[in-house]
Design a protein around this nucleic acid. Structure first.
Length: 517
RNA sequence: GGCCCGUUGGUCAAGGGGUUAAGACAUCUCCCUUUCACGGAGGAAUCACGAGUUCGAAUCUCGUACGGGCUACCA
């Protein structure tokens, strides 16, 4: 049975967009916004577009756009239309659409919904200083004070003259003094605002670039966006955007809004920032990001050793759940089960421990073949040559002990090279000549062993221990250390079997030697 | 300050008038494992507060408190 969704308009293809500004690394919250957009689009057989909002020349960072594209690719959230792929509504970079915004701004001025303003930054500061009081610490350029400023409302003739002279100006929206603006947010329901509380936001900047406020409505209209998901921080400016849709005469086409809850700091309060990650020791960006100006490197989830499947999974669960006990979801399962109505209203504190749990679960449920290429990278990085066939077996053997990808090197590295050191101290105190002779005999027996299988070695080991009257338990720990270097890893005879006869014997001999026997 | 949004264990959360208020992470105890994990069993721990509506409120209403967001020619 088809589900009837009140938020789906008949005969209209669902189109959503992710619209980041290329100013730096891609934050957890950003990726989650992409995810929800993507899931919604796929679920409703719609389009997912990537639009770059690079209208602020001061904050633009080169390389950031490529980085974002790469992040989406890593996560498997590839857009249908984007600056690099193009699409029917190209260009997808707002800087390249610059010429289209002025006309809309002027249309608004002509209709009396916007006006030219000539106040310099200094004059704006002055205004804020002048009106600042205890009760009003942040005065706004709004309906109450605009008549005291330098604009086409206070002096239309002068404005014409200034424009003719080429004096720089901005275009600001004229917010009604007292009007109720309300809309239905897909997550929050009815939200009401009084326009008297909002400021006359700048729509078009002096450099001719639109601000986010103008650009987002013009482009959402032009690109036929039907559903707009964005972070909760945008809620306060929503009334201005809604008014713009109305003033531009596009109200019927306005997308349905959904303001996503924020991802908050694990300790204390506020939204999660890059700095929290640095401080608390976990990544906040999807992938490593190097600031081109300072050269500072900020770690990403990918480089920390997260699987994209796990990263996407944990992000999905930060603010949404299926209403069942299921917590592990593949992208496909998320597409099938996602519903915007089940997204929470409240923000979620980020918990890195839980994030690691997701990765651990994904490592456990992934096949060796899936893991091999990712694990290989870490072996190469550690300078350990590892043949695929052996590495595959090692991965399957140790994956339940690995939480992050680099753990494979620690958990499986000893299969490929001798331990750098042996934890001799853990058994040295209890070492006796009997034990030395035990291992020497054991080597001989191993040497003669025909079928190199763990069961045979184990039997041999236990029989010999009984013969020498030593408890097997007291011998097992040293054997493990001889083979692994420390007390961890899979069952010791399994390790021995994989190591092979020559290497097993060599390691035992090496430790015997180090013990001075 | 103003406006807006939010509030179920330490964290993520289910539940939307009647429940012993699910589950997961973390934590603690035990079992399994002659290592480390995995796995299993169990414990501790929650409806911010106050009124109201109701036979009955975690669930509905209103206040209060607390938290957060916004308050730029940034997004």
């Amino acid at each position: 049975m088809a589900m009837s969704n009140s938020y789906l308009r008949a005969m209209e293809k669902v189109r959503v967009r992710f619209a980041p500004s290329p100013t730096g690394g891609l934050h957890l919250g950003g990726v989650r916004t992409v995810l929800y957009n993507y899931l919604f689009a796929r679920k409703h057989l719609g389009d997912f577009v990537l639009r770059i909002e690079d209208t602020d020349q001061h904050r633009f960072v080169s390389g950031a756009e490529d980085y974002i594209v790469e992040c989406l690719k890593w996560c498997g959230l590839v857009p249908d239309e984007s600056p690099t792929q193009g699409g029917p509504y190209a260009p997808y970079r707002q800087s390249e659409r610059k010429s289209s915004y002025l006309a809309y701004a002027e249309q608004l001025v002509a209709a009396g919904h916007a006006y030219y303003a000539f106040d310099t930054p200094e004059e704006l500061d002055e205004m804020r200083a002048r009106y600042k009081t205890e009760e009003n610490p942040s005065p706004q350029y709004d309906s109450k004070i605009r008549m005291h400023m330098k604009n086409s409302l206070t002096d239309p003739e002068k404005a014409k003259q200034l424009i003719a002279e080429g004096v720089p100006y901005v275009i600001r929206i004229k917010m009604p003094e007292h009007e109720d603006v309300s809309f239905t947010d897909l997550i929050r329901g009815e939200v009401h605002f009084n326009t008297g509380q909002s400021d006359d936001k700048v729509l078009l900047k002096a450099d001719g670039m639109p601000t986010y406020h103008l650009a987002v409505v013009v482009d959402d209209y032009l690109m036929k966006i039907t559903h707009a998901f964005r972070g909760e921080e945008w809620l306060p400016s929503a009334p201005a955007h809604i008014l713009l849709w109305k003033y531009l005469g596009w109200e019927k086409n306005m997308p349905q809004w959904a303001h996503l809850p924020l991802i908050l700091k694990p300790d204390g309060h506020g939204k999660l920032s890059k700095r929290d990650g640095d401080k608390l020791g976990f990544p906040v960006f999807a992938m490593n990001w190097t600031d081109p100006k300072t050269g500072d490197l900020t770690e990403g989830f990918r480089e920390r050793g997260f699987l994209p499947e796990a990263f996407v999974n944990l992000l999905a669960m930060l603010g949404w759940n299926a209403g069942t006990e299921q917590e592990l979801f593949s992208l496909e399962e998320l597409v099938a089960q996602f519903s915007i109505e089940r997204v929470h209203k409240g923000g979620a504190k980020f918990d890195f421990e839980k994030a690691k749990w997701f990765n651990h679960e994904w490592i456990k449920k992934s096949s060796g073949e899936r893991l091999l290429p990712d694990v290989k990278i870490y072996f190469e990085k550690a300078g350990i040559p590892a043949a695929d066939d052996l590495l595959l077996r090692v991965i399957d053997l140790v994956k339940e002990r690995c939480t992050l990808l680099p753990d494979f090197v620690e958990q499986g590295g000893f299969f490929f090279r001798r331990p750098a050191s042996y934890d001799l101290e853990s058994f040295r105190g209890k070492w006796t000549g009997d034990k030395t002779s035990f291992f020497k005999t054991y080597i001989e027996k191993l040497q003669a062993l025909e079928k190199w299988e763990f069961a045979n070695m184990e039997l041999l080991f236990k029989e010999l221990a009984a013969e020498k009257n030593i408890k097997a338990g007291e011998l097992l720990a040293p054997l493990r250390i001889m083979l692994v270097g420390a007390k961890f890893g899979p069952p010791v005879f399994t390790i021995s079997e994989m190591l092979g006869k020559g290497e097993t014997i060599a390691r035992i001999e090496e430790v015997l030697q180090q013990l001075g026997e």
